[in-house]
Every structure is written in C-alpha cells, then in structure tokens.
Computed example of a mutant assay.
Amino acid sequence: MINNQYPAALATPARMRVLASIDFDNPQLRAALNRITARTAQRTGLPISLATLVFNTSQMAVGATGLDDTWIAASDGTPVEWSFCATMVTTGQPYVIPDARDSEQATNPLVTVDGIASYAGVPLTVSGQIVGAHCILGTEAHQFTSGHLAELASAAQEITALLQEFSDLG
C-alpha cells in the first residue's frame, strides 16, 4: 500500500524533534536493540523482528534480527511508503496482518518482491511521541496470539527505555 499522506502525518515538529534527539547510530544502543529483537524472534517463533524509527520519508531498522544479507539490512530500512510500521505509528494502535497477501498491504513491494507474508507491531513512544515500532514479521501467513502481542509490548517497554536513555531529551 502506498499512502502519500504518511509524510505529512509523520512530519509533525514535535515528533521530528524527538526522533532527532535519539542517538540511533550509537553502537551500544544498536547492540542492545539487536539483542532484544533476537529474543523477541526466538520467543515468538517468527523469523524477523525489528525495532524501527519511522521518519517522514523513511523507516530505519535500528535493531533487527532475521534480515541477514537483505537489501533492507544493507540500507538500514525502507521507504516510508512501504512501511507497515507507519500505519501503526499514525494510528497509535497495535497493527496486525495475519496474511499480507490478503490485506491492504497486498501490493506493497515488501510483500510482492521480498516475500513478507505476516506482520504484528506495537508502538514505541518516547517523550510522548510515537517514534516507531517493535514488530515481528513472517514469510508465511501467521495467526498472531495475545501471547505474541504481550511479548512485543513487554519488549517495546525495554526498547522505549533504551531510546529514552540514548536521547538528549533524557
């Protein structure tokens, strides 16, 4: 799904200030986020787990497991128009897609080219602003349980604390 309204909705000055305050290139932050995403993937049984920051033009994977040598790993993210997380960031609600091929995301290149077939994500909120998501993705359709969402929410609290710690907003 390509949504041209994302950039305007995601570019509020308050959100952009919070995103700009996060030292997302810090190796200690990245290593900690990678550990959390690896744990989430292991506990949920899904092959891919991300901690993302969603900007007005792009989505950055600041913590990841399961991307290996993909173009997403090499580029550190995706265009915002392809971001499943952007939908959740703009609504403030968890976003679950059991079968992406039979959803509003069916024409998304992440589905049609890269083979993403399922998604579940919860918001990451720093200084009162939803800055991104903690999500799990599958290469097959998947029915997500309340346990999956509870695991995401618990890990999202840890991720949020880390992002706050590595923010100059304190």
Score class of each variant (00 low, 15 high):
residue 74 A to F: 11
residue 74 A to H: 14
residue 74 A to N: 14
residue 75 S to L: 13
residue 75 S to V: 11
residue 75 S to M: 13
residue 76 D to E: 14
residue 76 D to C: 13
residue 76 D to S: 15
residue 77 G to Y: 09
residue 77 G to C: 05
residue 78 T to K: 10
residue 78 T to P: 07
residue 79 P to M: 11
residue 80 V to C: 04
residue 80 V to L: 05
residue 81 E to F: 13
residue 82 W to A: 13
residue 82 W to Q: 15
residue 83 S to Y: 03
residue 84 F to L: 04
residue 84 F to Y: 08
residue 86 A to H: 08
residue 86 A to Y: 04
residue 87 T to C: 11
residue 88 M to V: 05
residue 88 M to F: 08
residue 88 M to D: 05
residue 89 V to A: 09
residue 89 V to R: 05
residue 90 T to M: 14
residue 91 T to H: 04
residue 91 T to L: 06
residue 92 G to N: 09
residue 94 P to W: 04
residue 94 P to R: 07
residue 95 Y to M: 10
residue 96 V to S: 00
residue 96 V to N: 06
residue 98 P to N: 09
residue 98 P to H: 04
residue 99 D to E: 08
residue 100 A to V: 02
residue 100 A to R: 03
residue 101 R to M: 13
residue 101 R to H: 12
residue 101 R to D: 12
residue 101 R to C: 12
residue 101 R to G: 15
residue 102 D to N: 15
residue 102 D to E: 14
residue 102 D to L: 14
residue 103 S to N: 10
residue 104 E to S: 12
residue 104 E to H: 12
residue 105 Q to K: 03
residue 105 Q to Y: 11
residue 106 A to R: 15
residue 107 T to K: 13
residue 107 T to S: 15
residue 108 N to T: 00
residue 108 N to S: 02
residue 109 P to L: 05
residue 110 L to M: 12
residue 111 V to Y: 02
residue 111 V to R: 01
residue 111 V to L: 08
residue 112 T to Y: 10
residue 112 T to S: 12
residue 112 T to V: 12
residue 112 T to P: 00
residue 113 V to Q: 14
residue 113 V to K: 12
residue 113 V to T: 15
residue 114 D to P: 06
residue 114 D to H: 14
residue 116 I to Y: 13
residue 116 I to G: 02
residue 116 I to D: 01
residue 116 I to Q: 08
residue 117 A to P: 02
residue 119 Y to A: 01
residue 119 Y to F: 11
residue 119 Y to P: 00
residue 120 A to L: 06
residue 121 G to V: 00
residue 122 V to R: 00
residue 122 V to F: 01
residue 122 V to L: 00
residue 122 V to N: 05
residue 123 P to I: 01
residue 123 P to L: 00
residue 124 L to V: 11
residue 124 L to R: 01
residue 124 L to Q: 03
residue 124 L to K: 08
residue 124 L to P: 07
residue 124 L to N: 06
residue 125 T to I: 13
residue 125 T to P: 09
residue 126 V to Q: 07
residue 127 S to Q: 14
residue 127 S to N: 14
residue 127 S to L: 09
residue 127 S to A: 15
residue 127 S to P: 01
residue 128 G to M: 08
residue 128 G to K: 10
residue 129 Q to T: 03
residue 129 Q to P: 01
residue 129 Q to K: 07
residue 130 I to M: 12
residue 132 G to Y: 06
residue 133 A to R: 04
residue 133 A to C: 11
residue 135 C to R: 00
residue 136 I to D: 02
residue 136 I to E: 05
residue 137 L to G: 00
residue 138 G to C: 08
residue 140 E to S: 14
